[in-house]
Design a protein around this nucleic acid. Structure first.
Length: 286
DNA sequence: TCGCCATGTCCAC
DNA sequence: TGGACCTGGCGAT
């Protein structure tokens, strides 16, 4: 269940497992059979992510994948075993001598040309994981909108990569009222939120885990700074094995429990089809 | 074993 | 704005 950090980590894993070598591609489920045939035997150039969109570049076309809410694309080392027999609805399997990657349940899986890839990228707001991204581009879209900042943070044309967990947690971190309209939001508040996302999302990629509580964030940053993050046990794709941190949040899925900052009760409410969690007592800023 | 929910998005009304 | 879609995990049965 992916926010942007998951897709960036996945792109890295695919890149390490497949880039620079020919790949066997197949669609056991059949829904991607013609396209898989076109990729079969081609060399993978690179894999990259923009927000929640994954692009795997081949010589003549680009595989575009969006996992949606329930898609998965695990990259597994084969070791000395043959790949497992495909089971269930396996949309796409990528295979070489060392790795297998099985794509299931994506909301999109398609082959695109460069123009089509550019069109998708152009439709997305800045991605805090892109070092060249400009948070001011998002601000220009936010400041004119009469929608709540809770909705705007989830709008991928405003900002690419943030999902429900990061939105709830980052609004709590900055004591921001989720119902503040874009037109009411202070620029200084946005700048703090953007800078925070730029700091938090790379920790999500490094640890394959959403970290938003100060104690965990500080520890994770120290581990990145002193190199010990790299020493965590990893498999041969470079993926960390097991969770490094306890799964804890300030407000996400904590309805009825005390806010860790002020002790008042965390609330939830459906906003545009997604559940928002927030503390009405200490999130009052605009 | 079943049913529900989920870190997402699109489309018809 | 509600439903549809796709799969895996988990609590209730």
């Amino acid at each position: 269940m992916p926010e942007g950090h998951t897709i960036h980590a996945l792109a890295g894993r695919l890149e390490r497992a497949f880039a620079g070598r020919p790949v066997e591609a197949s669609s056991p489920q059949g829904r991607f059979a013609d396209e898989a045939k076109r990729l079969d035997g081609e060399v993978v150039h690179l894999a990259r992510a923009v927000g929640k969109h994954l692009f795997v570049e081949f010589p003549d076309e680009t595989l575009h994948v969006h996992l949606g809410l329930i898609g998965s694309f695990p990259v597994l080392p084969l070791g000395d075993r043959p790949p497992t027999e495909p089971r269930g609805a396996l949309r796409l399997r990528l295979l070489n001598d060392d790795f297998v990657a099985d794509l299931r349940g994506p909301i999109s899986c398609e082959l695109l040309d460069d123009l089509q890839v550019s069109a998708i990228e152009a439709s997305l707001g800045p991605d805090p994981l892109d070092p060249a991204a400009d948070g001011d581009r998002a601000w220009q879209r936010i400041r004119l909108r009469r929608k709540s900042i809770a909705q705007l943070l989830m709008d991928q044309s405003v900002l690419a990569g943030v999902g429900n967990v990061y939105r709830c947690e980052v609004l709590h971190r900055h004591r921001t009222n989720p119902f503040t309209l874009g037109t009411q939001l202070k620029r200084a508040t946005w700048e703090l939120i953007w800078a925070d996302l730029v700091a938090l999302l790379p920790l999500g990629v490094a640890f394959s885990q959403i970290l938003t509580l100060d104690d965990q964030v500080e520890e994770a940053q120290l581990m990145v700074a002193d190199g010990s993050a790299a020493l965590i046990t990893r498999d041969s794709t470079g993926e960390r094995l097991g969770a490094a941190f306890e799964r804890r949040f300030a407000v996400y899925k904590r309805t009825g429990q005390p806010c860790p900052r002020c002790g008042k009760t965390v609330r939830d409410k459906d906003v545009a089809g997604r559940r928002l969690y927030w503390c009405a007592n200490c999130q009052r800023r605009h």
